[in-house]
């Protein structure tokens, strides 16, 4: 996503800047001239390269040194312009990357869901935002491809911006493909979890969407139908035909070990399950408080899921893959 928006700006400006290209070209002929006016939305390095290519085509006679200087001038403007941008765009990161909170949330949701043995809460708002964004990107891609075709066909000299549009289209497509993959894979992972522990998940319906709840119900019916047909109906007494006795319900393995990152300072009780044999020992240790470990933000742990479960739900600990 880094410079994509700059590129987009540039393509949009390209149509306008064509009009005063003569003027620009003039400036390019005299690279030493001071006070080159800062164009709005000065291109990033890529766009500068495209511009340079254009000049190469139109002006063979020019010496390489001037070209070089011209390029550097463009780059300098680029940087100054970026600095100005920071004030306007609040979402911009320190390293100049565009920071999209929804995307980051989705990434976190997806990784946690993959790493977590049980179903985690759904986030409908993020999904809506991402879907909107993806739809917008699709339109943008279509638009760009259209533009690259037109420009490629009509004017030979305008080929550079046509190529640029096509390049941006490809990058945007890759970007939206990846986002879409995460979104769909996240939903698929949730679905698989719902299926795997269908009976257990009846207690977790508040973590699901309306669609997932109805899916759980329908899948449960299907499962029960299959079991009835193959096994349960052939059993002699009603008492044995039950499918939902507590000891029969398959629940996720909460004692699985997970990788996680601590987001804010937490205390983790690492005592775990104790047998009767070392209970005395545990009491002794309790007095010294050695079972409670403190972990500062930013530390990475491998820990039994059960012990960080609440912290994960509170968002104090992030699961990693």
């Amino acid at each position: 996503m880094a410079d994509l928006d700059n590129l987009l700006d540039d393509i949009n400006n390209d149509d306008e800047s064509n009009a005063d290209e003569d003027y620009q070209d003039q400036q390019n002929y005299y690279p030493g001239a001071d006070g080159i006016p800062a164009r709005s939305g000065v291109p990033s390095a890529l766009a500068a390269a495209a511009a340079r290519r254009r000049q190469l085509g139109s002006n063979d006679a020019r010496d390489a040194g001037g070209e070089e200087r011209d390029y550097r001038a463009a780059a300098r403007f680029d940087r100054e312009d970026d600095d100005d941008d920071v004030d306007e765009e609040e979402d911009e990161d320190d390293d100049g990357r565009n920071y999209n909170p929804d995307y980051e949330t989705l990434k976190a949701l997806w990784t946690s869901e993959m790493a977590c043995p049980e179903l985690l809460p759904h986030d409908a708002e993020t999904v809506l935002h991402i879907v909107e964004e993806l739809t917008g990107k699709e339109e943008l891609i279509d638009d760009l491809i259209q533009r690259s075709r037109q420009q490629g066909r009509h004017q030979q000299s305008r080929e550079a911006s046509g190529e640029l549009a096509s390049l941006v289209a490809q990058i945007t497509k890759m970007d939206s493909d990846r986002t879409r993959f995460m979104l769909v894979d996240w939903a698929r992972t949730r679905m698989a979890k719902i299926e795997n522990h269908a009976l257990h998940n009846r207690s977790l319906v508040d973590r699901m969407t309306k669609e997932e709840r109805s899916y759980l119900r329908q899948y449960g019916e299907l499962l029960e139908k299959h079991y009835r047909r193959t096994v349960l109906d052939h059993l002699p007494k009603d008492a044995w035909k039950k499918l939902d006795e507590p000891e029969m319900i398959d629940s996720p393995d909460l004692e699985q070990f997970v990788f996680c990152r601590v987001v804010e300072m937490v205390q983790i009780d690492v005592r775990g399950e104790l047998g009767a044999l070392n209970e005395d020992l545990a009491d002794e240790e309790d007095e010294f408080g050695e079972n409670i470990q403190e972990h500062a933000a930013g530390s990475y742990l491998i820990v039994m899921y059960k012990q960080v479960r609440d912290l994960v739900l509170e968002g104090k600990v992030e699961l990693l893959m």
């Binding site: 809506l128 879907v131 890759m174 990846r178 993959f181 769909v184 894979d185 969407t209 669609e211």
Partner: peptide
Amino acid sequence: LSGPMQMYDWTADQYPP
């Protein structure tokens, strides 16, 4: 086909593109 993600093919992209 239900919910907000209905326009995507859920069986596509089994692995990251």
